[in-house]
Amino acid sequence: MKEIWLLALGENWEDEKEKIKDAIEIGFTGVVVRKEFEDLAKKLGRIKVFGVEDGVGENAIFFEIESAEDQNKAVELSEKFDYLFLKFSDWKVIPLENLIAMKKKAKLIAIVNDLDEAKVVLTTLEKGADGIAIAEDRREMMRRYYELASGEKGFVELKRAKIVEIKPLGVGDRVCIDTVTLMGVGEGMLVGNRAGFMFLVASESEESEYVSSRPFRVNAGSVNAYIKVGDRTKYLAELKAGDSVEIVNYKGETRRSYVGRVKIEKRPLILIRAVANGEEGTVILQNAETIKLVNPEGKHVSVANLKEGDEVLVWIGEKARHFGVGIDEFIIER
Rank of each mutant, 00 (worst) to 15 (best):
M198C: 12
S244G: 00
S205E: 02
L239C: 12
G221R: 09
S213I: 04
T233P: 04
E206A: 07
A241P: 13
T233V: 15
Y250F: 15
S208W: 09
L236I: 04
S203R: 07
S212K: 15
L200F: 10
K240P: 04
E206S: 10
S205P: 01
V245I: 15
A237C: 08
F216K: 04
S222W: 00
Y210H: 09
V211I: 15
A241Y: 00
E204Q: 15
R232I: 00
V223R: 08
G242A: 01
A220D: 08
K251E: 14
G230F: 01
K234C: 13
G252T: 09
R217S: 14
K228F: 01
G196S: 13
G252M: 09
Y210S: 07
I247D: 10
E246H: 02
V201H: 13
Y235R: 15
S244E: 15
G221H: 10
V223N: 00
Y226P: 00
V248F: 06
Y235T: 03
G242P: 13
Y210L: 14
Y226M: 08
A241V: 07
N219C: 14
S208Q: 12
M198V: 13
E206P: 00
Y235D: 02
V229A: 01
R217Y: 10
V223E: 12
E238S: 14
V218I: 15
E206M: 06
A220W: 09
V201C: 12
G221V: 13
K228G: 01
Y250H: 13
V223F: 08
A241I: 03
E246W: 01
D231R: 11
N249F: 03
E238A: 10
E204F: 08
E209Y: 11
F216P: 04
E207N: 12
